[in-house]
Amino acid sequence: MGQPVFKRIVLKVSGESLSGNLGYGIEASVISEIAEQVKEVIALGVEVAIVVGGGNIWRGIAGTEKGIDRATADYMGMLATVMNSLALQDALEQIEVPTRVQTSIAMQQIAEPYIRRRAIRHLEKGRVVIFAAGTGNPFFSTDTTAALRAAEIEAEVILMAKNKVDGVYSADPFKDSSAEKYEELTYMDVISKNLGVMDSTASSLCMDNNIPLVVFAITEKGNIKKVVLGEKIGTIVRGSAK
């Protein structure tokens, strides 16, 4: 089976990936498949924290384009991430993976508040922890949430699971047939080339805390396990050239 190369990871799942072919909302078969992949990784003894986006339900930027105040639109997006997190928790617990949702905005009837020490303790006990509601502040993306939580819980890597692409490209591969796929990049490359892997705040946070990032396709079964076992798939982004 091989030994995992990471002990503690943060898995970043885009909201769009949960909608599958529906284009909006949650497709049950997709979220169940993600849960199965997470279970495979847990079976290896890896501690897994998850950050889920909310773009399949609501995007703050899209709200501002409709005339909604930016802060209000972002708070609405945070609530969308909570809905996705609860759905993922349910999918995981249906296959007997103990899971806790922690939110950055207090909503104690449905989830725990985010407490760093409690999150780490859950991970040590083999529970999956899902961080919901972003950072709890507007103007920050869930990419930044993933970077921040990874630094706080001392995760060794962020796995960025993509729905449509299998790594980082020099241009949109769906629009430009000459787009080049990168096997390895630095965060400075990502920022200077404006590659759109994650926003500049998240990239800087990862770079400053020396947290590597692996960008890969979640649509292929077993890919999360492959990354954890050290297989070279997708694109790896490091703080500096190796």
Rank of each mutant, 00 (worst) to 15 (best):
M76R: 11
V101H: 00
L88K: 01
S141R: 06
M78K: 00
D172H: 08
S178H: 04
L123W: 05
K66N: 14
M107W: 13
A106R: 15
L79D: 06
E96P: 06
F174N: 14
T81A: 07
D166A: 04
S178T: 15
E154I: 10
I115G: 05
R59H: 10
R59F: 02
D172R: 04
R121V: 02
S141I: 10
G67Y: 14
N137Y: 09
P173E: 02
V48A: 04
A62M: 11
I110T: 14
M76N: 08
E124I: 09
A71K: 08
M76L: 09
P173I: 07
A71Q: 11
Q109P: 05
V157C: 02
H122G: 08
E40H: 13
G53N: 01
I50E: 11
S141L: 07
A119M: 03
V97R: 12
I50Y: 05
I153Y: 02
M107Q: 15
G54V: 09
I95T: 11
V168T: 02
L123D: 07
E124W: 06
K164N: 15
Q109L: 14
A146G: 09
T81F: 01
E40G: 12
V129N: 05
A73L: 05
N84P: 03
A87Q: 06
M160K: 14
R121N: 12
L88T: 10
I115K: 09
A133N: 00
A62C: 02
G45Q: 12
P138D: 04
T145L: 04
A146I: 06
A171Y: 00
G77Y: 02
T145V: 00
M160R: 00
E112C: 05
A91M: 08
T64E: 15
V129M: 01
G67W: 14
P113I: 10
M160Q: 01
G63N: 07
L148S: 03
S177K: 15
H122C: 10
I120K: 00
I110L: 15
F140P: 02
Y114Q: 03
G67Q: 08
V38E: 13
A49Q: 11
V129F: 06
E152M: 12
V97L: 08
K175T: 13
K66Q: 14
A119R: 03
Q102D: 09
K164S: 14
